[in-house]
Design a protein around this nucleic acid. Structure first.
Length: 483
RNA sequence: GGCCCGUUGGUCAAGCGGUUAAGACGUAGGCCUCUCACGCCUGAAACAAGGGUUCGAUUCCCUUACGGGUCACCA
């Protein structure tokens, strides 16, 4: 490769980081990092002031920093190709549009909106695809000069060849050829002198030396027009890498409305950023091996554009859950406790040993937001049904359970050393002396101290967690209920 | 509607003319076990349809169906 790779991520500051966009950023970052001395550039496309959201740019910085997708150049890191904020580049485009006019690849158009609307109305009525009719491309030099001189508002439109075809190569989709007759003479420079997105993009990418354009497949159909522009300027055409969208289901894209389309949504639900990145890397891309768990560095090493798939990928929260759980299990107890703390504080007021709690939870937690409901029994013992004591497999019923609790009570009351081992040993000694199955004693205990059908950990662990006083109280309560 | 693109189990996907068509998630059953989970074992489950090309098509070509994208002085 002659040139060093330069990729860019060009989000609009709309206030949140869409998962699909984040994936595009990931791929662009990976491509830059996986090549020698590649550069990853952040460009903010804020020309649509109506959609601009305060603080959105900061959110983009924060997300990239959080996830480790660090950019080498951007508004905050000048690399000599600035400005990196499109609205600050607004004056740069006009001369390029005019250059195109000189080269015969574009022309002034003086048609007003009324005429355009009328034209479109006629075309749609006669079921012809709406398209500019090239009216102003046939204006004489004199007519153009005259209108320009008298200050008639104008736009500059791209002049598409009347005949022939235009082809381009996409690294994902292969060679694509379209008839020029299906392409429209789109506006490059608007009446206000500002560029349309399509035009600005080509200019910016060229000026910033972008070698690989990675973007959503919605731009596939306008790429031929971009190529015509590059050719007219005599500029080198970048490599194109179009990515199919991330879908919610077979029909719909992941959308903001559903409330599960943004990176922040997942973070707020207690997903780990590494798990999110890992998961979306595999959504629409395959390393070609059986490896599924990747650190960012491993992704860099494994990434290859040839693994990007053409068809849309449906976002499967089940698999994300699994992957998140995998990442959670890799956390140390200390790390787990730190991440779980907000949820602990939310659910438990009682004084408990958080590390003990974490030890119980860390193999059973898919996402941190699941924690509160799993440990709600710690603060208060609910008014459970004694049906809970009946378990066929444990060979327990209400009677057996009552008996078990009555036997357990004095044993635990007699304990001075309230540790896991002490509780465990005492209880197992009881079990042995009684000659019963473990469950006959332990199952009723677990129910009595938790009041729940399912708990993280067994009776011994929960007793340890609750402390002697509370454990004894709950056992007594159980005996009472069973009386 | 025109143009462009896509289609392997429920989902992500490997495959790139000859395979018993991988693997993962999920799911079903089992083991482990004081519940749940973890872990382990086993199972069910796919080449959209029809034509070609070929000795041989999941793989190449065409048609159909279905899905997506795009047709703005939005990005």
């Amino acid at each position: 490769m002659a040139n060093k790779v330069r990729t860019r991520f060009a989000p609009s500051p709309t206030g949140y980081m869409h998962i699909g966009n984040l994936r595009t950023a990931l791929y662009a970052w990976l491509l830059a990092r996986s090549s020698d001395e590649g550069t990853f550039i952040l460009r903010i496309e804020d020309t649509d002031q109506e959609r601009y959201v305060e603080g959105a740019v900061d959110l983009i910085y924060k997300t990239l920093a959080d996830t480790g997708l660090v950019h080498d150049e951007g508004p905050d890191k000048d690399g000599g190709c600035g400005p990196y904020i499109q609205s600050e580049r607004r004056g740069m485009y006009k001369k390029y549009a005019e250059e195109l006019v000189e080269k015969g690849a574009a022309y002034y158009c003086f048609c007003d909106k009324d005429r355009l609307e009328e034209l479109r109305a006629i075309q749609t009525a006669s079921k012809v695809p709406p398209k500019y009719d090239g009216h102003c491309s046939r204006l004489s030099k004199e007519e153009i000069q005259e209108k320009l001189a008298s200050g008639v508002p104008y736009v500059i439109r791209q002049k598409i060849p009347q005949e022939g075809t235009t082809s381009f190569h996409d690294e994902v989709f292969g060679d694509i050829t379209v008839e020029n007759s299906t392409l429209d003479d789109n506006i490059l420079l608007k009446a206000d002198g500002l560029p349309t997105y399509n035009f600005a993009n080509v200019i910016d990418d060229h000026l910033m030396g972008i070698t690989h354009v990675i973007r959503g497949s919605e731009y596939l159909s306008s790429t031929p027009k971009y190529n015509l522009l590059y050719e007219a300027f005599g500029w080198e055409i970048p490599k194109y890498i179009h990515c199919s969208p991330v879908m919610k289901d077979a029909q719909k894209k992941l959308s903001k409305r559903e409330g599960d389309a943004s990176y922040e949504d997942f973070i707020n639900k207690g997903y780990l950023k590494d798990a999110i990145i890992n998961y979306i890397a595999l959504l629409g891309w395959s390393p070609g091996t059986e490896q599924e768990i990747f650190t960012l560095d491993e992704l860099v090493a494994a990434f290859d554009v040839s693994g990007i798939s053409k068809s849309p990928a449906i976002f499967d929260v089940n698999k994300l859950n699994w992957m998140n759980a995998e990442y959670i299990r890799k956390l140390t107890i200390e790390e787990f406790t730190e991440k779980a703390m907000p949820y602990y504080k939310q659910a438990v007021k009682r004084d408990v040993d958080y590390n003990l709690l974490s030890a119980l939870l860390h193999d059973r937690t898919e996402k941190f937001s699941d924690i509160p409901e799993n440990i709600d029994f710690i603060d208060t013992l609910c008014d459970y049904d004694t049906e809970l004591y009946v378990n066929k497999k444990m060979k327990t019923n209400e009677e057996v359970s009552k008996d078990a609790l009555e036997k357990i009570l004095p044993v635990l009351e007699g304990l001075t050393d309230w540790t896991h081992d002490a509780i465990h040993d005492a209880l197992f000694a009881l079990i042995e002396s009684l000659g019963v199955k473990n469950g006959v004693i332990l199952f009723p205990l677990r129910v009595a101290v938790s009041g729940k059908k399912f708990t993280p950990g067994g009776g011994v662990e929960i007793a340890e967690l609750l402390g002697k006083e509370e454990t004894i109280a709950r056992i007594k309560k159980g005996i009472e209920k069973l009386a």
